[in-house]
């Protein structure tokens, strides 16, 4: 199972801070990267080196200044850097899942509905999607009494587990994880590690940021390093 799922080349990303006198931050330059099905790559580097930015580029959330990000979508390759918005949305629906560091809660939407949403977006019937959401939340230790509530009042660790369930439920062929275990205690961390390993074993290509060395050792097949940041003010 060494079929490449993402092949990025010559990626560059910087930010121009117009509200701060046009300061220019150069974050990434000339990055070449690939990840294959059934492989888990851990992004490694100091704070501010661009790990989260890189993950967001792979999701089409940040826009690259140069380079390409070829994603294997269905039986085709889509370049996320140049793809029109509709294509990026289709890639996210079917191919690339993303677990952000924090859950974005929606007013009045229950945890189980939030988790079921990626399946609903693919046309899975409500009953079936909710049943899978319940099962996954159960595995993540979210009790039944919480599942029907909107997560706005949940603890940080509970919200993060809802977020992980939402990211993992649709069995995306590619998973991007930004510190998925950061807010969790040891028992819950182990549950998440088990789910990540299961996803990898079913053939998902996984790219993640794992600050916890034990988690990283448990899930990652190799590291991909980022150099310390070198902000370069211009003008």
């Amino acid at each position: 199972m060494s079929e490449p799922m993402i092949v990025a080349s010559g990626l560059a990303k910087g930010f121009t801070l117009h509200t701060q006198g046009g300061t220019r931050l150069a974050v990434l330059a000339g990055v070449d990267f690939s990840v294959a099905a059934g492989e888990c790559v851990a992004l490694d580097g100091p704070s501010g080196s661009g790990k989260s930015s890189f993950l967001r580029l792979l999701y089409g959330n940040y826009r690259a200044d140069a380079g390409r990000i070829a994603v294997r979508h269905r039986d085709d390759w889509v370049d996320l850097v140049t793809a029109p918005p509709r294509r990026v949305l289709a890639v996210r629906r079917e191919t690339v899942g993303y677990v952000s560091q924090f859950l974005r809660v929606l007013p009045r939407v229950s945890a189980r509905m939030l988790v079921a949403e990626p399946l609903r977006a693919r046309g899975v019937a409500a009953d079936a999607a909710l049943a899978r959401a319940d099962a996954l939340l159960e595995r993540l230790g979210i009790p039944a009494r919480l599942r029907g509530l909107a997560p706005a009042t949940f603890s940080g660790g509970e919200q993060q587990r809802v977020n992980i369930a939402r990211g993992l439920i649709a069995d995306h062929p590619v998973l991007l994880l930004d510190e998925p275990t950061a807010a969790l205690d040891a028992a819950n961390r182990d549950r998440v590690v088990a789910l990540i390993r299961a996803a990898r074993d079913r053939g998902a290509a996984i790219v993640g940021i794992f600050h916890d060395a034990a988690v990283r050792a448990a899930v990652a097949d190799r590291l991909f390093g980022f150099a310390a940041p070198s902000p370069r003010p211009v003008g």
């Binding site: 930010f15 121009t16 801070l17 117009h18 509200t19 967001r56 089409g60 959330n61 940040y62 826009r63 918005p85 990026v88 949305l89």
Partner: peptide, 15 residues
């Protein structure tokens, strides 16, 4: 895309 424009705004006015 909505999240691109909000998370990585390019134009000074959007920022």
């Amino acid at each position: 895309l909505t999240d691109q424009v909000l998370d990585d705004p390019q134009h000074p006015y959007t920022q």
